[in-house]
Amino acid sequence: MTPLQNTASGEPLIKVESLCKIYSLDSGAAGNGNGNGNGTVNSQVLFDVSLSIHRGEFVAIMGHSGSGKSTLMNILGCLDTPTSGHYWLDGNDIASLSDDELARVRNRNIGFVFQGFNLLKRMTALDNVATPLLYAGVNRSDSRKRAQALLHQTGLGKFAAYQPNQLSGGQQQRVAISRALVNNPQLILADEPTGNLDTQTSREIMEIFQQLNREHGITIVLVTHEDDIAACTRRLIRLQDGRVVHDAEVPA
């Protein structure tokens, strides 16, 4: 059971409308925005961002550092909340959800893949993949079985008992992808998933994403600043200074 109710499939999976994000920093801290005179400095990162992503899309978000792409990803991943604007995930208004409901959405509907892998240290690959299932209330032996199957699927079946520091970057990222997939999410959010990997490994990881998108119909949103990575996707959104400046299909 998912906390989000599936609406008509014509509805986009992700819909954001005039999203703004303003960070308030204490005065004295670095900030490039306008002081408001109250001892804090406001720094606006997202300006009026509106976009829709439909089921089965494979989208790359590009932009220079500071363009707001990571902030947008955090908001899409329900890790952060916008200062203003609306976000509907699968037709549900995210602003209306409680902390616990957001945790459920992150657990069941979204899979995260990070640049730094973000695996839990000193825990085996198998346990890392199984952890989201434990948070979903699945018992330990069932979750291990499912985790083992996923590791097998990403080609890491033999590495189940390894801890992250015993694995290469590419292998760690495969573990992270297995973890992201373990609860059968509709959406995978990948924040520079190849940023710490060499070209060959990057290509392999992108192949996994393409396969997931193509064969399993999983919607993938990927942040990158590498053009050849973006070329693997099917739609490119370019952010600049917190605004969408480009949104078009990637020519095949």
């Binding site: 945790a103 459920r104 992150r106 657990n107 995260f112 952890t131 989201p132 948070y135 973890r179």
Partner: peptide
């Protein structure tokens, strides 16, 4: 990380 993967 735990919160991102669904810990409430």
């Amino acid at each position: 990380i735990r919160m991102a993967i669904g810990a409430n």
